[in-house]
């Protein structure tokens, strides 16, 4: 209960500000606390993709931006203002054109989203660096990033799933400390 209240307080604390430029104009997160869990139906996904998801959430999003992240063990918790976990992720063999996909499952009024499904294209032939970039790219969609920028970083083509100054400026502009 205490945890639920704490999460609720944190979830309402993140004031959102207008996007800086056009390539962060997609649906955005419901608050500056970004929760996540694995929704795979296959045990294969967790060892292959799980460490990269945790790495991106902890070391790119949490450490470098105003967004706080938390791995949670619930899909829905009724006591919270935004009761669904923000990101459910898994991997699947997606149809061409190949790539990840991000879907807002629970749109809120305006352009916010309570619950995202993030699916990574599962290609065993990809090098690890390619996977990390895709994880970072899809997660940034859940924070409002649109495709289109080509200046590197997680949205603009990498390398290696690292946020660049452009990504960080956009995220902090929207979820500022």
């Amino acid at each position: 209960m205490v945890v639920a209240i704490l999460l609720g307080v944190l979830a309402t604390a993140g004031a959102s500000s207008p996007a800086i430029a056009h390539d962060f104009s997609g649906r955005y997160a419901d608050s500056s606390l970004h929760t996540w869990w694995n929704g795979s139906a296959r045990s294969y996904d967790v060892p292959v993709w799980g460490p990269m998801v945790a790495d991106i959430m902890d070391n790119e999003i949490e450490r470098k931006t105003a967004v706080r992240t938390a791995k949670v063990s619930y899909h829905y918790r009724s006591g919270l203002r935004y009761p669904y976990v923000d990101i459910s992720w898994w991997a699947d063999d997606l149809p061409a054109p190949k790539g990840g996909k991000t879907t807002c499952e629970r749109p809120l009024s305006g352009s916010a989203c309570d619950h995202w499904h993030v699916v990574f294209d599962d290609d065993p032939g990809q090098p690890v660096d390619g996977k990390r970039q895709k994880v970072c790219h899809e997660i940034l969609h859940t924070l409002g990033a649109d495709d289109g920028s080509n200046d590197g970083g997680c949205i603009g083509g990498g390398p290696e799933g690292k946020l660049n100054a452009h990504d960080i400026a956009h995220i902090n502009g929207k979820y500022g400390r």
Binding site: R27, G99, K101, T103, C104, K134, D147
Partner: peptide, 10 residues
Amino acid sequence: VIERTSEYER
């Protein structure tokens, strides 16, 4: 309907 963002070549 449900909206999906997908990666593709621009």
